Simulated assay, not measured.
Amino acid sequence: MHTMWKGTISFGLVNIPVKLHSATENKDIPLRNLHKECHSPVKYEKVCPVCDKEVATEEIVKGYEYTKNKFVILEEDDLEAIKDENDEKAVEIVDFVKLEEIDPIYFDKSYYLSPNDGGTKGYVLLREALQETGKIGLAKITIRSKEHLAVVRIYHNTLVMETIHFPDEVRDFKEVPNVPEEAKIVAKELDTAKLLIDQLTTEFEPEKYTDEYRTALLDLIDQKRKGEEVSTAKEPKKHDNVTDLMEALEKSLQKTKKKKKKPAAKKKTAAAKQAKAN
């Protein structure tokens, strides 16, 4: 399993060397955008609408739009300075709480934690302490220049760190439009709904749930591939100096031929011929 981060878990004076591994993976099927006419992948270029030209990566700077079309420019040195101040490789547990006190709306992404060199004993110590107390650790960590709030808990026999949103990142539910405060519900309707819930109530078995759309899409792609319903993108036309030179020479040759052509001589009239003879 790929290690994406190395650091320590700290609580009190205890420091445990750990490695961080992504616990989930995105299994969406990537579909490319192709030109309908020739089935070539469509390119997305970074173009400046004012200068009307493509912008190279080294010509791009960061900016914060504080009002319409007004920007505060942030240099790389500014961003690096802030990053250095907050980029300590540590999961600092600041509190211990109960898992049920955190609403699922706060949870973001999950990571497995494994002990790094010399961290085995401390890893087991923290795992057993969390298991015995029924608590989870509430921590702070910086990943890719962004500070996260996180929880450290046990998943089977493995420590898991899950990033969670800060309170100001969760939108106020009171802003959701058209949510009714109450409505007249007939008792019989409510009893029927509760009976249906009872009938569908079961233990959570994640293995029985599958992404049916992804499965159907993979089957469709496989059928088309086996039926040779495939398309090969055409190689983009390459313009080199030789090709450009030949085109220029051919165009020049055509222009020269046109200039050499003289207008047809006019036929002399009978009267003109007679005058010339006298």
Rank of each mutant, 00 (worst) to 15 (best):
H2T: 05
T3Q: 02
T3H: 00
T3W: 00
M4R: 01
W5F: 04
G7E: 04
G12T: 05
V14P: 00
I16A: 00
P17C: 06
K19P: 00
L20M: 12
L20Y: 03
H21S: 06
A23H: 02
N26E: 10
D28L: 08
L31V: 15
H35P: 08
E37L: 14
E37D: 13
C38R: 14
C38W: 12
C38A: 11
P41E: 05
V42I: 15
V42P: 09
Y44R: 15
E45N: 13
P49A: 10
P49Q: 13
V50P: 04
V50E: 11
C51I: 08
E54T: 14
V55N: 07
K62W: 07
Y64L: 09
Y66H: 12
Y66R: 06
T67C: 06
K68A: 13
N69H: 07
N69C: 02
F71L: 14
F71Y: 15
V72A: 11
E75S: 10
D78F: 13
D78H: 11
E85Y: 12
A90W: 10
F96T: 08
V97M: 06
V97P: 03
V97F: 12
V97A: 07
L99Q: 14
E101N: 03
D103S: 11
I105R: 06
L113Q: 01
L113A: 02
T120K: 05
K121M: 10
Y123C: 00
R127D: 01
A129R: 01
L130D: 03
L130C: 02
E132F: 04
T133A: 03
G137Q: 03
K140F: 06
I143F: 04
I143Q: 00
R144E: 04
R144Q: 02
K146P: 01
K146L: 09
E147P: 01
E147F: 00
H148P: 01
L149I: 01
L149C: 03
V151C: 03
V152D: 03
Y155P: 00
H156K: 14
T158Y: 10
L159P: 00
M161H: 06
E162I: 11
I164F: 13
E169P: 14
R171P: 14
V176W: 12
P177H: 10
N178S: 15
E182A: 15
I185N: 13
V186L: 09
A187S: 04
E189K: 13
D191P: 03
A193R: 09
A193V: 12
K194R: 08
K194P: 02
L195A: 15
D198P: 09
Q199F: 09
Q199C: 04
Q199Y: 08
L200V: 06
T202S: 06
E203P: 03
E203I: 10
E203K: 06
E205P: 05
E207T: 12
T215L: 05
T215V: 07
A216H: 10
A216P: 06
A216R: 13
L217P: 04
L218V: 12
D219N: 08
L220M: 15
D222W: 02
K224R: 02
V230H: 02
P236S: 00
K238Y: 07
D240M: 04
V242T: 08
T243R: 11
D244K: 11
D244T: 13
L245E: 06
L245N: 03
L249P: 09
L253P: 05
K255F: 08
K255D: 10
K255S: 11
T256D: 11
K260V: 04
A264M: 05
K266F: 08
A270Y: 07
A270K: 11
Q274I: 15
K276A: 15
